[in-house]
Write a protein that binds this DNA or RNA. Structure first.
Lengths: 269, 269
DNA sequence: TAGTGGTCTAGACCACATT
DNA sequence: ATGTGGTCTAGACCACTAA
């Protein structure tokens, strides 16, 4: 909430534009501009916050990419939604997401094996042929309820660390972060798959039942792959949401080349 | 592909940074920097293209949001992927997407009714209570194969135009665009649903079979809702992909509040 | 220590929407 | 005609990475 002549951005955040963005986000959430209302002009905001127009534009770019406001030449920005909470870690980490929705996350390691990587895994994790990988199978729970099965393939550097974690560790992501493994980019593919025997046994569903699948390949800030994972959710426990605008989109449909059982199931580049 | 001292950006696109981005994208796709390789420094690129560093940074922001390159302080940018094609329209329009993957899109209008909007629809389309809406049910096909059922609710202004389209019109989005209806922002929710009798009849699947569902609310550049749609895909015909980075994300998980049959099925804000 | 990307400024001109 | 956001420039300083 900013003042009339406000210049106090007492907020915590690091850079100036982030603090401005956080302040504007709060004001929008508080309904200061109404849903469908208009934001002040960039110049006015610059004056109010005592920063340059460039910094204001940087802050507004954040809100735009979050789907909070529109932007087009000639008119003031329009407020699209009143709130929206989403962070990178919430999508990447089951634990982080569970906590953000007020549920108690759990994770039980069902198996962890070390074995040579197959061709697919070498390609995805950018490993030399013959390299070894660590493969985990975990049951994830929300407040004790089984919700998701997680199969993850780690490259050696990361897998060695994972192998040392306790079997009931809740958040691998957070523990790996403490060891200097940073997740910074990820590609996700969402589709539908049918439960196999492991799935049905652990999730308590019938074999062949449809599950929502999310596959993901994550890299560190240097672009080096750190995990390749396949998560299978019980129906009704989760939905994925995305916002895109004509200005900047991140999501796309991926085609499954129809009745052609020859090629392997490759929906990830 | 840029030259050693290149300054020729003969490309079509409008703004300078877009042409630079397109040029860099091509160079990356051509493998000029290798996968996992490093881009030249911003300053070097600025000199090469004869533009300011700010413009280069604008171009690189495009590539970063497409998941093509990383970026972190202290090091040159790293190439993440070699290619990635995705546009806003591909996600929004079944027709546009189908064409981009080389399939022949089709659409058959099964029904179109005009009726008063319910509370949910008024809220989603930001209409006054008692306003009327146009509701369509369409079967979408790829090269003749049934693939998806599309249920769309339009506000009056848009619905009146839709009602005048031929029943076998392939792309409503494109035809509406010719009438000045522009889709510029959309919120998507992806989850799993079971086929009802309409679904099974039109898609040729068994009732109760699991389908991949995408719900979407789209607005025009002024933030005014122009459609609220629910699409149901046959399993195996489509997968949704998304890229996100610690810098900017657009996707999130949405929680389904578990065994509580009281509250209506609201997974969209 | 040198090089890199991240942030911020101040100013300019243009394309577009609205009046 | 006015005001708005979009684009572009030139320069500055800082935080971080890597040698």
């Amino acid at each position: 909430m900013q003042d009339d002549d406000g210049a106090q951005l007492v907020r915590d955040g690091g850079s100036l534009y982030r603090r401005v963005a956080a302040d504007l986000r709060e004001a929008i959430a508080a309904g200061s501009y109404g849903s469908g209302g208009r934001l002040p002009a960039e110049g006015a905001l610059a004056q109010r916050y005592g920063v340059s127009r460039g910094t204001i534009r940087q802050a507004l770019a954040v809100l735009r990419s979050d789907g909070l406001v529109t932007s087009r030449r000639g008119t003031r920005r329009v407020v699209l939604g009143t709130a929206r909470v989403q962070s990178f870690s919430e999508l990447l980490s089951f634990t982080s997401w569970a906590r953000s929705v007020g549920e108690e996350p759990g994770g039980a390691m069902e198996s962890l094996v070390r074995r040579p990587a197959d061709d697919r895994e070498c390609e995805q994790l950018r490993l030399e042929p013959g390299a070894e990988v660590y493969v985990t199978l975990r049951l994830r729970t929300l407040s004790g309820r089984p919700v998701m099965i997680e199969r993850t393939v780690y490259p050696p550097r990361v897998g060695e660390l994972v192998a040392q974690l306790p079997a009931d560790a809740v958040s691998h992501t957070e523990l790996l972060l403490e060891h200097g493994i940073v997740f910074s980019d990820a590609d996700h593919t969402i589709d539908l798959v049918h439960a196999d025997t492991d799935d049905s046994r652990l999730l308590g569903c019938t074999a062949g039942e449809a599950l929502l699948r999310e596959r993901r390949r994550s890299t560190d800030p240097a672009g080096v792959p750190v995990e390749w994972s396949e998560d299978r959710y019980l129906p009704g426990t989760v939905a994925f949401t995305v916002h895109n605008s004509i200005a900047a989109s991140a999501l796309s449909r991926r085609h499954r080349p129809a009745p052609d059982p020859h090629s392997p199931d490759v929906t990830r580049g």
